[in-house]
Structure formats: structure tokens, C-alpha cells
Design a binder for these strands. Structure first.
Lengths: 327, 327
DNA sequence: CTGAAAGCGCTTACAG
DNA sequence: CTGAAAGCGCTTACAG
């Protein structure tokens, strides 16, 4: 391994001069060329650890994710990764396997590794999060959830919920089951539902019942039959595509035809939803783009630029074949 | 930030003694207790960069992946991550977006960051890979592909192909289309096909035609109709679950009933395959477990323990409803 | 513009 | 068992 001292010796200058050259300081024309040549010949590249030891900061952005095997997470990570590369930062991902303690741990551990900033894909923000973020003193950007005290980037869950509510009303559905998730998750559990509820209130004579399940396909699969029997809805609006997939499977199992006997919608826009039979009507979020935005924002924060506390990523309804027209 | 010097001062000993204590060297009973207490009080934790600067090695295992949004990758990463945590190592993932140059780059860059070892989820091993691995002089474990010169961990693609071939023959299928991928991918493109072909040769009077598509669902979707028309198979054996999903959708679109009009199988065992209608019969691989194995192996390699050049992860046929019984 | 020197926080022979 | 000292590879005032 060649070091800065080697380069200095070979170029006949001082180490400090090489360092200055490397860091864009003022160096004479001649000196510059000599150093350039030597570096080229040796293929020198600085030791990151030595740099970090002095600099107290790296060009690494830590990304904390609750899980690795989710469509939303994967796409968001890709967006972050690609944008960060462009900006000459590296992404370090820390997986917490949906364990809140590990989320806090990760925050500390990333801080210790002197990451320049942290992107947090949280499902929930607790008092401990707030304290930790405060304590580590590193820029943190929340993605997917929002909190007034933390820079946040969210999908427009509320408006998305509203849009799908209006959509269903317009299709003439008067008896709709909304299958959501726990209100602990503000974005998915509360905002989507509220948006939906708002749209329904505007509509006339639409009866809605709200149900709750988990994020797991299997749980939706088990839940849906009882909803069908008890409420006999013409449509089920599901809070995620995975829930919708479970609902679809449940409907098949009961011998129902989609959308003739039952309409189903989701949220997310996972690629797989297009390949189902019938194709699922859903609200698409732009995870990859949001990841890119997040990368931009965190780097701005690292550079101490001013940004808004809240950024919102867009959505779009994708109309496919899983919703029947009743009106 | 408290440093080792602070601890030394507070405990009234030399820095070297503290360092020795930290690294499990021999320290007197009394000294030990003093240092212990001070560290406890200050919440000291060593600076990783300073450690790495000397140590020339970290406790980080780099994992190079071609993409982040694939079922197999996600599950494998989870397996690696969890096992590595147990072993007190950290996982650093480097995404290459299926760019071969970036794969090589990543190898160098990880080496520069002094990772202890590298797990490489490759789709292909080239001469450049070999050179790079040679050059960086860090233990590398190949996962998903095998190469005689590199420690490898593979899924049993050959036997899996054989198993599904026998399975289909036993169900009485005599006219089977095999929809594979490019032979550039030895594991998926060659081994699965060879295994399958071997099984068919054992069987009697089974006609097979081999087709090729990409890993994309959409490409399979486009490819399948022509296969159906040209060959009129009773079954399509697809080299991945995603291809099978595309085939399923194509079949729907042509108004075919599955499995009555056409049987379909995949490889992978993605969770989603259970939720399709009908549920997809497929060969399941154990990605997460394989990830755990990979983590074990690479750590053994890092510790200079002897391991076999090749490890093989198991598979299992999951029989669901997408295959008809003709015999 | 350039160089000598100190220092970042650790580890590791070496001597006692 | 313990400590003083040198060194890992870089950066950063400071002086010239």
C-alpha cells in the first residue's frame, strides 16, 4: 500500500503539499503536475481510516430500515443508493428486523462510525427516538413517517386515501369495507384511512366499515372471509398491496369472481400487482424517486443548507381490472 | 468524546494498559477493576477509525449484490445480517445495479475499507473477478454461483432441476416447454436446465422444447403466447418464480385455465407464489438459511479455518395447484 | 505557494 | 503485570 509519504517522497515535495493537492488546496502548477503523475503511476488512494480519524466525519450516509424484504424498502434503498453515488456519498444500511431497540442502537452505532447523516425509514417515532436523535447530533431524515421535530419525507398518504375513496364512490360502490392496519403506524394506519374517510363523507349514501389486520398477507387472508360474511361489501379497500393480495386470494378461495362479485384495491403499486389476475387497481407511490429525494435532502442537511421540515412525495392511481363499475 | 487517554488518566494507569485490558491482554486484578469502573462511568467506547488504522482490518463483512429488489437477494441478505450479528460482525452491503464494472469496483473499494471478508452474490464469474479477488487478498465467498478457484456456496440447482423434471414426468406430462434463461448464468441458466433434461431423459416418451427469456416478468409475459401456439405443451416449467408468474398471467390473458389447460411451475419459493390463483407449484430454495451459512463460512475463512471449497444449500418441491395430473 | 511539526486515538513491540 | 515511546496515514494550523 502506498501512502501519502511515498507520494511526497517520489514527487519530491512535503506530505502536507500532497495532502493539500488532494483536498483541493492551493498548489503550484509545477508541483501539481509532479504529484499528479506520481499518483497516477502508483495508483495511490488515501486511507479512509486515517482520513476519518482526523476529519471526524465520513462521506457515508447511514440508512436504518425496519426490514430488508419489503418492496417499499428495497425500492427506496435503490433510490437512495443511486442518488448518493451521484453525490459522492456511500450508503450504509443497517437492518433492525423490526426491533425498536435495535433501531435506537443503530442510531448510536452509526453516530459512532461518524456517518455524515442518517436516513431513518421508521414505522413509528417514539420519545426515545427523539432523545437519541438529539443526543447524537447528526442530521437525521425521517422517511415514510412524519414528526414535527424531525426533518421528514412522506408519501402523500392522506391525499392518496382520499383519491381512492373518491374513485370508489365514483364507481358507484355503496357498501365498502376498509381493511387497514394499526393506528400505531401514523402514515399507513391513520393517514390513509382518514383520507379515505374524508372522501366517503363527501360522497352520498356510502356505507363503510373499518377493519384492521397486520401487514402480513396471511393475516389478511384469514381476516377477509369474516368481513365478507358479516358486511357483504361490494368492495374492499386495502391499506397495502400485500393486504389486497391476501384479500384477493381469500376471495378466490370462496369462489368469488373479481371484480364482478367483489372489487379490491390496494396501496403501494408493487410490480407484482400488475401480474395478478385480475390486475389490481391500486394507488402507486414512487418509492425509488422518494429514496432519491431523501438522499438529496440528507446531503443538503449535511452541508448545512436550509430545507423544509416536511417534503411530500406524490402518488398516482393505477386503474386495472379489480374494480367493478356499479353506477 | 472520551478517549483511551481519558480512561488511562482517570484510572491512573497507562494508555497501553487500558488498551491491553480492552483487547483481553493480561491485566492485574486491581487494575482491571479500576479500568472497568472508569469505563462504566464514562460510557467509553473505542474509536473505530483509530483501531482500524492500526489493525488493518475491521470486523465488517462486505456483501456485494447485483440488485436490492429481488426476493432471493433480500432473503439472503437477511440471513447474512442476522448470522453476522450473532458472530459480532457487521454487514456492509454494496449494490451494483447489475453492472459488472461496479462489481469489480466494489471489490476494490471494500478491500480498501479493510473489510475482513467479502460475500459475493454474483450472477457470473469472469476473468476480471478472478484477478481482482486474487489481488485484494481478502477472503471471498461466492454465493449462488460456483467456481473451482473460489470458495462457493450454491443452491442445489442441478438436483432441483432433476427433481422438478421427475415430478412432471410422474404427473404424466408428455409435452413440456422449459422456459429458461441465458446460459451466461451457470446456476440458473445451465444447471437447472441440465438437471431437468437429465430427468426427462430417464422418463419415457416425453417431448421437451427449450426456450429462453430474461429474469423479467414482463419478458416472460410476452414470450409465452408464442410458445403456447407453436408447441402446445401441457406444461411450462419456468426457471424462476418470476418467469412462472409471467407465464401465469399470459395464460390468463389467453383465457386458459390453470392447471386444466396448462400446468406451470417455477423455481425459488417466493412467498407470493402461494398467494396466486392457483397457488404455484415450485421448487423452494432456502435463501435466508443459505445467507446464514454464507456468514458462517466467511467468518471461518476470516479466522483462517479450513472449509470446503463448495457448500450446497438444499431445496424442496412445494406442491400446490398449478400442476395437473394427466396420468 | 510550500514545508516542518504536532496531533487525531489507538496498538504494539520493548524494556522493566 | 505495567509503562514510555513509536507509529498507523492522514490533516491542519503555523511560519516562511
Amino acid at each position: 500500500m502506498t501512502t501519502i509519504a511515498d507520494i511526497a517522497r517520489l514527487a519530491g515535495v512535503a506530505k502536507s503539499t500532497v495532502s493539500r493537492y488532494l483536498n483541493g488546496g492551493s498548489v503550484g502548477e509545477q508541483t501539481m503536475r509532479k504529484i499528479e503523475r506520481v499518483i497516477g503511476e502508483t495508483g495511490y488512494s488515501p486511507n479512509t481510516f486515517a482520513q476519518s480519524l482526523k476529519a471526524k466525519k465520513t462521506n457515508i450516509i447511514g440508512t436504518v430500515v425496519p426490514r430488508l424484504d419489503s418492496y417499499a424498502t428495497s425500492k427506496t434503498l435503490i433510490g437512495i443508493d443511486e442518488k448518493l453515488r451521484e453525490l459522492n456519498y456511500q450508503m450504509f444500511v443497517s437492518n433492525t428486523s423490526q426491533d425498536l431497540d435495535r433501531e435506537i442502537e443503530s442510531l448510536y452505532s452509526l453516530a459512532k462510525q461518524k456517518v455524515a447523516g442518517i436516513i431513518l425509514l421508521a414505522t413509528k417515532v417514539t420519545e426515545r427516538h427523539l432523545e437519541t436523535i438529539q443526543e447524537i447530533g447528526i442530521p437525521v431524515l425521517l422517511v415514510g413517517q412524519q414528526h414535527e421535530q424531525i426533518y421528514s419525507l412522506i408519501h402523500d398518504d392522506f391525499e392518496a386515501g382520499k383519491a381512492i375513496g373518491r374513485f370508489m364512490a365514483k364507481k358507484g360502490h355503496k357498501q365498502i369495507a376498509y381493511l387497514g392496519v394499526s393506528e400505531e403506524d401514523i402514515a399507513v394506519g391513520v393517514k390513509r384511512k382518514q383520507g379515505f374517510a374524508g372522501a366517503i363523507k363527501e360522497a352520498e349514501e356510502v356505507k363503510v366499515r373499518y377493519y384492521e389486520t397486520s401487514f402480513k398477507i396471511g393475516d389478511a387472508l384469514e381476516k377477509v372471509p369474516s368481513i365478507l360474511e358479516e358486511f357483504r361489501p361490494t368492495a374492499i379497500v386495502c391499506a397495502t398491496d400485500n393486504i389486497a393480495i391476501g384479500a384477493l386470494k381469500a376471495a378466490y378461495s370462496k369462489g368469488l369472481k373479481i371484480p364482478e362479485d367483489l372489487s379490491i384495491t390496494g396501496f403501494g403499486g408493487y410490480e407484482i400487482t400488475e401480474m395478478l389476475n385480475p390486475g389490481l387497481t391500486t394507488v402507486q407511490f414512487f418509492y425509488k424517486e422518494a429514496g432519491g429525494m431523501a438522499a438529496d435532502k440528507i446531503v443538503q442537511l449535511v452541508n448545512e443548507e436550509e430545507i423544509q421540515m416536511l417534503s411530500v412525495s406524490d402518488f398516482k392511481i393505477i386503474e386495472r381490472e379489480s374494480v367493478d363499475i356499479l353506477s
